[in-house]
C-alpha cells in the first residue's frame, strides 16, 4: 500500500462528528469522524446492521444526518439543494441491487445522466459510454435491456453508469452481496481496476480478501460507532481492539 504515500495528501472526504438516528432505540451513526485522502480506498466492515450502509448513504445525501458536517471536494453537504446536487455529480454510487433503469437499454442507462446533467450531446455521451463498456467488458451488450443480463453484468453496467459522470469519488454499497458466487469475481475485478487507477473509493463489503487487497484504510464499526480505524496493513495484522480481533477471527 505505497501508492498514495509518496504523493501529497489531499483530503477529499471530510466527515466530522456526524450523528444520525432512525426512529427506534438504536442510533444509526454516533460521533462518526473520518477523512479520506484523494486516491485512497477506504473499506468499511462490520456486522449486519452496524450502520455501514447508512454511513455510505449519508455521503451523497441519500440519508440526512442529524448533526455534524460532511464536506466532499470542498463542498459542504448541507440544506442547500444546490450543494447536494453538486456533490451527487462528483460522487458515483453503486448499489447492492444494481438499480439499473429497466425501461432503457444499457446504452441509454449510461447516456442518461451524461446528457441531462453533464449536458453532452448524444454523440459525445455515446462515445464515453462505449469506452466505459469496453472497460467493464460489455461493449457488445450496449443495445440489450438490463433484464437480459446476468447479475454480474448488470452490476458492471451500473459501475459504468456511475463512472460516466467522471466522479471524483465512488461509493460501493455491498456491490457483490446480491450476486451468485461465480459472478462476484468479475465485479471485484472491475473495482480492483478502478482502485489501481487511483479512484477514491469508499467500499462497504463482506469480501475480506478483497478488502485486504485493495484498501488503504479500514474502518471496523459496530452499532453505529467506529470501533477501530487504521491503515489496512496494521489493521489486519495488528488489530488493537479485542472486539476487532474477535470479528476478524470469525470471518477470515
Amino acid at each position: 500500500m505505497t501508492r498514495s504515500e509518496s504523493v501529497v495528501k489531499e483530503i477529499i472526504i471530510d466527515v466530522d462528528n456526524i450523528n444520525k438516528t432512525y426512529p427506534g432505540p438504536i442510533p444509526a451513526l454516533v460521533n462518526f469522524t473520518t477523512r479520506v485522502n484523494k486516491g485512497d480506498v477506504l473499506v468499511v466492515i462490520g456486522p449486519s446492521g452496524s450502520g455501514k450502509s447508512t454511513f455510505l448513504r449519508c455521503l451523497n445525501g441519500l440519508e440526512e444526518i442529524d448533526s455534524g458536517t460532511i464536506i466532499i471536494d470542498s463542498i459542504p453537504l448541507d440544506d442547500n439543494e444546490k450543494h447536494r446536487l453538486e456533490i451527487r455529480r462528483e460522487v458515483g454510487m453503486v448499489f447492492q441491487s444494481f438499480n439499473l433503469f429497466p425501461h432503457m437499454t444499457v446504452l441509454e442507462n449510461i447516456n442518461l445522466a451524461q446528457r441531462l446533467v453533464r449536458k453532452k450531446n448524444r454523440q459525445q455521451a455515446t462515445r464515453t459510454t462505449m469506452d466505459l463498456l469496453d472497460k467493464v467488458g460489455l461493449a457488445e451488450k450496449a443495445e440489450s435491456y438490463p433484464a437480459a443480463l446476468s447479475g454480474g453484468q448488470q452490476q458492471r453496467v451500473a459501475i459504468a453508469r456511475a463512472l460516466a459522470m467522471k466522479p471524483k469519488v465512488m461509493l460501493f454499497d455491498e456491490a457483490t452481496s446480491a450476486l451468485d458466487p461465480e459472478m462476484i469475481g468479475e465485479v471485484l475485478e472491475v473495482m480492483n481496476l478502478l482502485a489501481n487507477e487511483g479512484m477514491t473509493m469508499v467500499v462497504v463489503t463482506h469480501e475480506m480478501g478483497f478488502a485486504r487487497e485493495v484498501s488503504d484504510w479500514i474502518i471496523f464499526m459496530e452499532a453505529g460507532r467506529i470501533v477501530e480505524q487504521d491503515r489496512s496493513g496494521n489493521f489486519f495484522s495488528n488489530a488493537k481492539k479485542e472486539r476487532t480481533r474477535r470479528f476478524l477471527s470469525q470471518i477470515i
Binding site: L116, V117, R161
Partner: peptide, 20 residues
C-alpha cells in the same frame, strides 16, 4: 432504488420523474 440511482447520478427530481 430507482429514485436513489437517479438521484445519485445527479438528476433533478423533475428529470427523475420524467425519464425514470
Amino acid at each position: 432504488g430507482q429514485w436513489e440511482a437517479a438521484h445519485s447520478l445527479g438528476l433533478s427530481s423533475f428529470d427523475t420523474y420524467r425519464t425514470v
